[in-house]
């Protein structure tokens, strides 16, 4: 599988933030998008996920024969929130997302228990998600990526709430995902610690301050 971005441009609130972002990732490759606050890391990630329209450019997923795939069926998006209900148990939360993102059940992936074990939180499954600490919650958020097998992971600050040990755990999971032929794109301001991940500084693609008469600027 390949993930190809060509000439992506995007912005927020009428302000263009970055332009001409192009990259191509093969199976097993990762990309860490770095840059200061406000350069548009999260915006770029949301454009890649398909949640925001790109001002210009395209992002495509292609299978090994080069056919374009329906991107949202092949990617996991983890924002800075974990998409879990505080009132429901960890186990029910993961079960729900497993059946939601893979109703037919043929994509494969770990069971909820196995995913909880994979993030080393055995025995926590029956507790309501709201009772967990911030770091534990984030690990469960990562466990959601494991219950359904999808090749492309789009992660927004995956390690921000994690301590050193949990970060290493996350790095091991991400490396296993890459070894398995997966792809990974993460927006981060911390070193990911994942081997074989290239770094891309979004500040290099920042839009120089635009003249207001450009006419496009307020769109």
């Amino acid at each position: 599988m390949q993930a190809i971005a060509e000439g992506l441009a995007g912005g927020r609130g009428g302000t263009a933030l970055f332009q001409d972002v192009s990259f191509a990732l093969e199976s097993g490759a990762g990309l860490a998008i770095v840059g200061e606050n406000g350069v548009g890391k999260s915006t770029l990630l949301r454009i890649l996920a398909g949640l925001l329209p790109a001002a210009r450019g395209t992002f495509e997923l292609r299978d090994d024969e080069g056919a374009v795939l329906i991107a949202h069926e092949h990617l996991h998006y983890l924002s800075h929130r974990n998409a879990m209900k505080r009132e429901l148990s960890v186990h029910d939360n993961l079960d729900f997302w497993k059946s939601f993102s893979d109703p037919s059940g043929d994509a494969g992936g770990l069971s909820a228990e196995a995913a909880i074990a994979a993030v080393e939180l055995e025995g926590i499954g029956h507790l309501p998600f709201g009772y967990l600490s911030t770091g534990q919650q984030r690990r469960i958020g990562v466990a959601r990526l494991l219950v359904t097998r999808r090749p492309l992971w789009l992660l927004d600050e995956p390690t921000a709430a994690l301590d050193l040990r949990s970060s290493r755990l996350f790095a091991a999971l991400a490396e296993a995902h890459l070894d398995d032929g997966g792809l990974l794109i993460a927006a981060t301001h911390l070193p990911l610690g994942v081997d074989g991940v290239e770094t891309f500084d979004l500040a290099m693609a920042a839009v120089p301050d635009t003249d207001c008469d450009d006419g496009e600027v307020w769109m």
Partner: peptide, 12 residues
């Protein structure tokens, strides 16, 4: 609020 809406909106 919990971010789940993103995953819902991502569908066809």
């Amino acid at each position: 609020e919990d971010g789940g809406l993103d995953l819902i909106v991502l569908q066809d």
